[in-house]
Design a protein around this nucleic acid. Structure first.
Lengths: 395, 395
DNA sequence: GCCGTTTCGTTTACGCATTGAACTAACATG
DNA sequence: CATGTTAGTTCAATGCGTAAACGAAACGGC
């Protein structure tokens, strides 16, 4: 049972301020008057609060709107230049560092190629730190103007006193990326699984906008999912919820790379799918190989649709989301060609009531949203606390 | 994205008061001094707040504890007689109404037998209303002393302006039980799916106590689950989350009574399990039949263990709970005999990290906890708001 | 029996939050 | 220029939690 924290009058302010900020962030420019309706706060409170936020330069004015026969409304908006956030995508083949302003407009980016099986954690950490310096220089932003760094990594991210990462494919077994980052930068660091950061990006800025209950599935060579309940990502007790790929969907099915049998990933993951279609294991350009397989069609593709639809149907029955997003490079390729068939399979395999409450759509942000989603972790913290800048410099 | 509500200073009080009440409810009798530590509130606040609660008779003193060399501590506790709650279990064969005091001690109960296929909603509503009168009389409690009535029903409970219930097996398709109850009583009414109320009971008073992330699976003739994330039940967008039974676990498996193939319920639900074991369909005493099947052992039982374990493994991968509870009359019968084997299967089919974070245990409350869990819905409301009594009489 | 000590609990002055109501600002219209 | 209308601000009132001072109730030693 989650016990609530002790609250004091100042928490009221913090909460209301965060709500106002979120309203303005997602609800476009608004006048103070409109904000009273949108937030439920009194005009007096809106006035003092916007006054604070304006003088802190978190908000800015954004023109006027004449109202017939009265004082014109002054529009307010979040100041996109108030601060910046950095997002990092650590993938099998590259490390990408991106700089965004508060509105998630990309200001600079840098890519580092990783040689396969050269995933030494120290090397990766050095790349990230170097990348931060590069994007700051390219974007002409100082570290003081940055709220923090979000990092999306593969594998399981164990959040404790020290953030530890377990990623079999990288040979990472409890590597302390958090500590390594803190040793190299004073910026606040947020680390999470890459599939989850991508889910976060879709939820905030992509096809998941506004959904309180959603599942974002990510199909690449592996398969994962982000479960959103009541507007928040479900993390589970050790932050490893969302391992959808190794759901058994066939009791004595195909051998999966995890060593088990009948995993969903062995059927719909790109690796398993290509193997089933007879694509040679040494193929390197998986996306084009997958494209050819999908164009050719046939039983393997039909089966894939069936397995994917059935897997999604299971999610709908269990979690009753209002929206399901299909993402990841392979997921998008399959979805673009077969979304309608997938919907049919889902309908056949889920209960009527929850099925009718769900819409199944493709992700909007493409496979590159991992870094953006990671940066979103920082943004989320900012919108919740609206912590003043340079707090991190002090600590 | 769940947007938080506007907050005012009075919400602070409400929240802190609720926290104090919960602390005392679950944390046994405590002195004011201990409460400062447990709640994080200052001694001053504890003093004024306990003063209020004592004069409202929500709390009562519970003796003293001498402390070596100082003023003795006065222990405070929730007054179990302050108010009562009523729980109702609407099942296929009976309607049960139970009266509890605030500490969930049963004060009275009444059972009405329902003839099979006589599930007319009007009849059920009359039985419930009659039952309320009976338990109030038996328990010598007036309606003014009752905080509300919780009702656990089969099927999907659609929460809207009017609570509608969809239960195929009862022939209920959108029946307005909420409205019928309001027509017959002025008590506040809370309705939810019976599997969920049982899950709620286990979470609050059974083997789920203290778990923030849990899954409570209910195996009877059907199969359902309650998912708890961050201490709250996951309801989904139309309150129908938790339909675990119709998860496809074998693509072309056994025909399920839902019309689909390969549902988990077709293997581990009592009906499916008995059918697989060759028990004649006209058997009426399912529990003893299941007992004989389980005693006899053999392939069917082994398969059942495998299917159940695999299903649980899927839940662990997806949701990363800290605890899994197996409940329901059939679940308890299977679990009592085969829990260790189930654990082994789960271990073989789930990822190491989340598996190690999970303990798998049996439910503690037995199959009769539906009414208790329903009553818990009322209790939850009370602890959150500590709304004064007789509010319902006014409305 | 008295007094200092220890621990528990209460009272009071204060800071900070929202709010309603009164007030000021900025426009259009005639 | 007066009037009406809408937008935004200021201020006294009220409520809350806290720290610090204060009061209460025991014990132990003499």
């Amino acid at each position: 049972m989650a016990r609530p924290e002790r609250k004091t009058v100042r928490d009221v302010r913090k909460g209301n301020r965060g709500m106002l900020l979120r309203t303005l962030y997602f609800g476009g420019p608004r006048s103070r008057h409109e904000l009273t309706g949108l937030t439920g706060l009194s005009a007096a409170t809106i006035s003092t609060m916007t006054g604070d936020l304006l003088s802190e330069k978190i908000l800015m004015e954004a023109g006027q709107v004449e109202s017939d026969g009265g004082r014109p409304r002054v529009l307010l908006r979040v100041n996109p230049g108030y601060a910046h956030v950095i997002g990092v995508d650590v993938a099998e083949t590259h490390v990408r560092v991106e700089l965004f302003d508060l509105e998630m407009t990309e200001k600079a980016r840098v890519d580092y190629t990783l040689r396969p099986s050269h995933h030494d954690i120290e090397l990766v950490a050095r790349r990230i730190l170097a990348g931060i310096d590069v994007v700051l220089a390219d974007g002409q932003v100082t570290a003081e103007q940055v709220l923090g760094v979000g990092i999306g990594v593969p594998g399981i991210v164990e959040r404790g006193a020290d953030t530890l990462i377990h990623a079999k494919t990288f040979g990472w077994d409890g590597v302390p990326l958090g500590a390594l980052m803190r040793a190299g930068t004073s910026l606040p660091v947020f680390i999470d699984n890459g599939a989850k950061t991508m889910g976060q990006a879709e939820l905030w800025f992509g096809a998941g906008r506004g959904a309180d209950h959603a599942v974002i599935v990510l199909i690449g060579s592996g398969v994962g999912a982000t479960v959103v309940a009541d507007g928040l990502a479900v993390r589970g007790t050790s932050n490893s919820a969302g391992e959808w790929g190794h759901t058994k969907i066939e009791m004595s099915g195909r051998l999966c790379r995890c060593g088990s049998r009948g995993c969903l990933e062995a059927y719909i993951g790109a690796e398993g799918l290509l193997a089933r279609a007879g694509v040679p294991a040494q193929t390197t350009d998986w996306p084009s190989a997958l494209g050819r397989v999908l164009e050719a069609g046939g039983d393997v593709v039909q089966e894939t649709v069936t397995y994917l639809g059935t897997g999604l149907a299971n999610l709908i029955n269990m979690l009753n989301p209002e929206r399901i997003l299909i993402g990841g490079w392979a997921g998008l390729m399959i979805g673009e060609r077969h979304l309608d068939e997938i919907r049919v399979v889902v309908g056949e395999n889920s209960l009527t009531q929850p099925y009718n409450a769900t819409s199944i759509v493709l992700g909007e942000l493409g496979p590159d949203a991992v870094a953006m989603g990671a940066a979103t972790l920082v943004l989320e913290e900012f919108l919740d606390t609206s912590a003043p800048l340079r707090l991190h410099a002090a600590s």
